[in-house]
Simulated assay, not measured.
Amino acid sequence: MYDKLLQYMHSGYGFTQEETETVRKYFEPVAFSKNTIIEEAGRVPQYLYYIVSGYLRLFYTDEKGNEVTTHINCPPGFFTSYSDFINSTVSENTIESVTDSELLRISKENLDHLISQSQAMKDFSISVFQQSISYNEKRSRELSVLNAEQRYLQLMNDYPEIIQNVPIRYIASFLGMKPESLSRIRRKIIN
């Protein structure tokens, strides 16, 4: 279960064998079945998750009671409500498993401990958070400059696995449209 994470961590960060064993010690394996709430809104996020397999979504509930999906992962990778996790603040977001999922998780306290003890872990963590910021900036730009069809085509191009594994209602919300609009776009593309 640790192979993907350790392979990712060893790509250019110089982890020693001792640091690798410490990572194994602090990252706890967990599994969640489909449609399980992993972290609830209204609480401080407890963990940073590394997704070994499966799909998660991050969503909030708007003033009308609608769930708005703001992030869907493509495994493998890290996942949480980042700013709330980093700052230990109450999150407005919920994390839910969209499919059966296998994860490795680490608490903020343990992550901070690892970072303070290991330059390689510090460098790796900075890189992960920079990637998250870059991803969010790109996503924000796409939502503001691309039309609905272009956003869907971009998602198909960048993350085709999401299209095959995540329900259309979550994909539509993630792309900033209604499921009916996405269905029309999909029919147009197929024809």
Rank of each mutant, 00 (worst) to 15 (best):
K4Q: 15
L5P: 02
L6I: 15
L6P: 00
Q7T: 15
Y8F: 12
Y8Q: 15
H10Y: 00
G12W: 01
G12A: 14
Y13D: 03
G14W: 01
G14Q: 07
F15E: 04
T16E: 05
T16D: 03
T16Y: 01
E18N: 08
E18L: 10
E18C: 03
E19N: 06
E19R: 10
T20F: 01
E21Q: 14
E21A: 13
V23R: 02
V23Y: 00
V23I: 14
Y26I: 12
Y26S: 13
F27C: 07
F27T: 09
F27S: 07
E28W: 00
P29F: 04
P29T: 13
P29H: 12
A31D: 14
A31C: 09
A31R: 10
F32W: 05
F32V: 15
S33I: 12
K34H: 02
K34I: 08
N35M: 12
T36H: 05
T36W: 00
I37L: 09
I38P: 01
I38N: 02
E39I: 05
E40R: 15
G42L: 06
G42Y: 04
R43A: 14
R43D: 06
V44K: 13
P45G: 12
Y47D: 03
Y47A: 07
Y49Q: 03
Y49F: 13
Y49E: 05
Y50Q: 03
I51C: 02
I51E: 01
S53N: 08
G54E: 05
Y55I: 10
Y55V: 09
L56P: 00
L56N: 01
L56F: 01
L56M: 10
R57H: 07
R57N: 10
R57K: 11
F59E: 07
T61M: 09
D62G: 13
D62K: 05
E63N: 14
K64Y: 08
K64L: 13
G65P: 03
N66S: 09
E67I: 04
V68L: 04
T69A: 09
T69Y: 00
T69L: 01
T69K: 01
T70N: 08
T70E: 05
H71Y: 07
I72G: 03
